[in-house]
């Protein structure tokens, strides 16, 4: 094992190393950090960033970006709140849905918005940045329209209407947060699909070289649309969990969360150029974001310093990422020359 190999091993494991160092640091800095209750509360936040980050990872892997995830989360939360508190009024008739139905409706809305994103990007050749930037505003506007900007409070439902139980997604089961369970389920599924199915290979190829993928028979447009739909569903799930955690839905919920999602993915080694990304990395990335944010709060670091530190960590991560890629390219070249 030469020096390059050693450096490479460290670089590849860097996200875990960074996470471990952060946990160690905050445990020393704040007594309350490494306790069951605060770890639970961190993990609830991590679940939100993690699920958004997983959807974002799929999008980034294709070489795209999805800026609308925070707004979709907000809209999904508002739709849930509206349906629980006000029901749906059609032709003077008000219908109340059960909680499972409401969850499905909210997820379908997320999927539909993702579908629109994907179609605008593939059929009208709009840059993903612009298409999803537009959708970020549209979805946020729709979220506000559901209540005219007001909050839907106290989303516990009524026994008589058969719509109780929404708060379950913000609670714990046997001491384990439901949000984390959902994160684990989504992460496992996303991991399997990305690594073990033809679809996963195809989206990695689309981001790696769009033209070559197309000429290799990959249905580039079709697969790209699916990826945005997946991101939309992930966002809606996050909206539902966040609303449930608060037992209230506010139209600005999820504002700027797209940035946390991108940061989680990038910290986990996903390339903004496409073609490279792992689900495990993104989940670790989400933990890093969560630990930094909550850890600094517990240490009493001011909100302003939090922003600065978060920003620096993200840029530093990408610098290290670039370094790793250059090293990798150099090693490939060496291997190639050695082959000759």
């Amino acid at each position: 094992m030469n020096k390059n190999d050693l450096v490479m091993t460290i670089l590849k494991g860097r996200t875990l190393i960074v996470l471990a160092l952060l946990v160690l640091f905050f445990s020393l800095a704040s007594e309350s950090f490494f306790t069951g209750s605060s770890l639970l509360s961190i993990s609830k936040h991590v679940a939100l960033y993690g699920i958004l980050g997983i959807g974002m990872t799929y999008v980034l892997v294709t070489g795209g970006i999805d800026l609308s995830v925070g707004s979709i989360a907000g809209l999904a939360g508002m739709v849930s709140g509206l349906l629980i508190n006000k029901g749906l009024t059609l032709f003077g008739q008000t219908i109340y849905f059960s909680v499972p139905t409401i969850v499905i409706i909210a997820m379908l809305i997320g999927m539909l918005i993702g579908l629109i994103n994907g179609l605008v990007i593939t059929k009208f050749a709009v840059a993903p940045f612009i298409a999803t930037l537009g959708m970020m505003y549209v979805a946020r506007g729709l979220a506000n329209l559901t209540s005219n900007g007001a909050t839907f409070p106290n989303l516990v439902g009524k026994e008589a209407l058969g719509n109780t139980g929404f708060e379950i997604f913000g609670r714990d089961i046997a001491g384990f947060p439901v949000a984390v369970i959902i994160l684990i389920i989504i992460a496992v599924l996303a991991f399997i699909v990305l690594r073990k199915t033809p679809f996963g290979w195809h989206i990695l190829a689309i981001g790696g070289n769009n033209r070559a993928a197309r000429l290799s028979g990959v249905r580039v447009d079709h697969d790209t649309v699916l990826v945005y739909m997946f991101s939309g569903v992930c966002s809606a799930v996050v909206g539902i969990i966040a609303t449930s955690q608060l037992v209230a839905s506010h139209p600005m919920t999820g504002n700027t969360w797209e940035m946390n999602a991108i940061a989680a993915a990038v910290l986990g080694g996903t390339s903004l150029m496409g073609g490279v990304g792992t689900i495990v990395g993104t989940v670790i990335g989400a933990f890093i974001i969560g630990v930094i944010t909550d850890g600094m709060v517990m240490c009493g670091v001011s909100e302003f310093w939090q922003m600065i530190i978060k920003g620096l960590v993200i840029v530093l991560a990408v610098i290290i990422d670039q370094y790793q890629r250059n090293l990798q390219a150099r090693m490939a070249l060496q291997a190639r020359n050695a082959n000759k």
């Binding site: 990695l204 190829a205 070289n209 033209r211 070559a212 390339s271």
Partner: peptide, 26 residues
């Protein structure tokens, strides 16, 4: 089809040898 420009149209540079060969038929 084997395209004219190998780097632009033939290979997915981010994938390994095995993945590139299997891409169409995976």
């Amino acid at each position: 089809l084997l395209p004219e420009d190998r780097q632009r149209d033939g290979l997915v540079q981010t994938m390994n040898i095995d993945q590139n060969i299997a891409l169409t038929n995976i």
